[in-house]
């Protein structure tokens, strides 16, 4: 049913730390790798080794330049995947019931066998979280690795989304936002986590942590290191004096 649940028992999602992300794209690659062999049809590519490869990805990293008025510009790497919105517009527009939000954990999923590939859900999403698979012609999106997080056949430390598991910088965190005591909830409270495009009214579950403020050099108090007039002795001292005498 494409009506949204009034509430969900859990609100599973990600915290993405823009201060820590180094933009290495490891989460992007591991996401593609896992989701090509996991839930649903493989993530398709067209012309993958050719001049103009195109394919479906569930997680992409953009890189932005942020220019403050009074300081040099900063570079912010910006991973983006489905935000598993509480008020997900992609779900309610779906004409077939293929898109749904689970009432137990809040994950937004697509039942690919019911998807007609109309693309309206991708139009309804402000974040670009849904991409049409160019081979299967069904809509693809982040599943929060639903086939990992409840999977008893893999070691416990692997039961987190592939992007979180692989991040070498620890910039991605997975947890339950409905529990104010959870690690992710506390992280968001401590670091001032925010929503993307709150004006769209989507109430995203995923939160982003802002880059920590950069230290600014004190104006006028810069310490200059003057080259000291070094006194050489021995052979070099003799050479120095001899060259001086030459004028």
């Amino acid at each position: 049913m494409t009506s949204l649940p009034a509430s969900t028992d859990k609100a599973l999602g990600l915290v993405i730390d823009l201060d820590t992300c180094v933009g290495c794209h490891a989460c992007v690659v591991n996401c593609k790798e896992w989701n090509t062999g996991g839930y649903g049809a493989p993530l398709g590519d067209i012309d993958p080794y050719g001049a103009e490869p195109v394919g479906a990805w569930l997680n992409r990293i953009h890189t932005f330049e942020v220019s403050p008025d009074d300081a040099p510009a900063s570079i912010v790497h910006f991973p983006k995947s489905c935000l598993h919105c509480s008020d997900a517009p992609c779900v309610t527009v779906c004409p077939t019931g293929a898109s749904y939000k689970r009432s137990d954990d809040g994950i937004v999923l697509v039942d690919e066998s019911m998807c007609i590939g109309c693309g309206l859900c991708a139009w309804a999403c402000p974040y670009g979280a849904r991409e049409m698979d160019p081979v299967e012609n069904v809509m693809k999106k982040c599943t929060l690795c639903v086939d990992r997080i409840y999977n008893d056949n893999i070691p416990e430390e692997d039961r987190v989304p592939a992007c979180v598991r692989t991040c070498p910088a620890g910039a991605r965190h997975f947890g339950d936002f409905s529990d104010p005591q959870s690690d992710v909830s506390q992280l968001v409270a401590e670091r001032g986590g925010f929503d993307l495009m709150p004006e769209m009214g989507t109430a995203p579950v995923n939160k982003y942590l802002p880059p920590r403020p950069k230290t600014k050099p004190d104006s006028g108090a810069e310490r200059r290191i003057e080259p000291e007039a070094a006194k050489a002795d021995g052979f070099l001292g003799w050479l120095d004096q001899a060259l001086e005498k030459l004028g």
Binding site: E52, G55, E65, S67, S74, E131
Partner: peptide, 20 residues
């Protein structure tokens, strides 16, 4: 969400090519 830091400009797209 980076507006409080300053003006935001795209430096690099996720991939060099087009996508859906």
């Amino acid at each position: 969400g980076l507006g409080s830091m300053g003006k935001v400009r795209l430096l690099e797209s996720p991939h060099s090519g087009e996508n859906y």
